[in-house]
Design a protein around this nucleic acid. Sequence first.
DNA 1: GCCAACGTTGGC
DNA 2: GCCAACGTTGGC
Length: 163
Amino acid sequence: MIYFTRGMISMQKQYWLFKSEPQTFSIQDLMAAPHQKTLWEGVRNFQANRMMLTMQVGDLGFFYHSSCKTPGIVGVVRVCRAAIPDPSAMDPSSPYFDQRSSQAQPRFWCVQVELESIFPKIIALSELRANPHLQGMRLLARGSRLSITPVTSQEWLMIDKMA
DNA sequence: GCCAACGTTGGC
DNA sequence: GCCAACGTTGGC
């Protein structure tokens, strides 16, 4: 799928998966947030964090609930603001505070996302694992712990059909 | 630049 | 709560 930004540059839309522990921030919390938007703060793994730098406004992501009774995908978010320095890294009162971050030299970034949809029922991790078309999915890779992973367009369409 | 120790993630 | 897997730190 091709789309246009700023009237000039055409780019491929990218797809992502955002993990969150529902006890910390659930998709219901996002629904209740002002304008149903949130900064995706607190990602402190460099590999995962760097992915936010490559995100573009309009990119779509699955919202994944982790570390809970039934881990799985619960809905879709849309990137509505490109990466900015993660304010929580510069906030001493935040649990995500990072001593080595500064405005001049940010180490961590965050995009803003808005709620796109909540699935009528969760697509459980076990269902994803059981789907032969998703065997190569980054989320399912052995030992995968990244809180943000890329999703291919084929995987996106397949999972969207499962919803 | 290696690598052991340590901390964290996250499914089960 | 266990534990495998992985990332980060810091001594050398």
